[in-house]
Simulated scan of single mutants.
Amino acid sequence: MADQGRRAQFRRADHVLLCRDGEHPSNGRGHARGWVTNASANLDANGQAFDGAKTYRLRVPANVPVKDFWSVVLYDTQTRSMLQTDQRFPSLSSRTKPKTNPDGSVDVYFSPKRPANADNWVQTVPGKSWFTIFRLYGPLQPWFDKTWKLPDIQRVG
């Protein structure tokens, strides 16, 4: 999420599902009962729609507050289904053990061709716009109290 001084490009959507035992999902046990939360982005940090011919980077901060895992998936703005690319799935997840930066953050690149030195890459399609959904499975308290924030996606090429 962007700082309050800037317009946020990510939009949060916390899906509240009642846990059978009455526990709040922020305790990290909610995913087994269907708790997932997400943030979607239709625009880059400059307020521009994502262009499949350009290169973008999402820097996922260290210590994503999840019990289970996080994922980022690209969707086609016209069909609202996953973007069809040469990759099996247009996504990246903590389950796939992405390469981390020295500070523990993860750089995820979105572009039609893999940028040099981009270990974590999701393919886009020139001529197609897209949007992304970042999901947290088993979200923990820092997500709910907003002490952990997801930054806007930056155009880098």
Rank of each mutant, 00 (worst) to 15 (best):
G138S: 12
R12V: 07
S26R: 08
L43W: 10
T124Y: 14
D76K: 01
D119N: 14
R7V: 13
P115I: 14
W70P: 02
F50G: 02
D86A: 12
A8D: 15
Q154I: 11
N42I: 01
G127W: 05
I133H: 07
T55A: 06
A45V: 13
V64M: 03
K146W: 00
H24A: 09
G30Q: 07
P126Y: 13
H24M: 12
P151V: 02
F144R: 12
V66S: 03
A53N: 09
N101I: 01
V122R: 01
H24I: 06
P151G: 04
R88W: 05
P98M: 01
W148V: 00
N63W: 04
W143C: 00
W35G: 08
W35S: 15
D68W: 04
D3A: 12
W70R: 01
A62R: 13
W121M: 10
P115S: 09
N46E: 15
D86I: 03
Q154W: 01
M82A: 08
G34P: 08
S111T: 04
T96Q: 11
A53V: 06
T100R: 05
E23V: 02
T100F: 01
G34W: 14
S105R: 03
V125I: 15
V156E: 00
F131N: 11
K113Y: 05
H15Q: 14
R6G: 00
S40H: 13
Q9W: 00
D119E: 15
V16S: 14
N38E: 15
S94P: 02
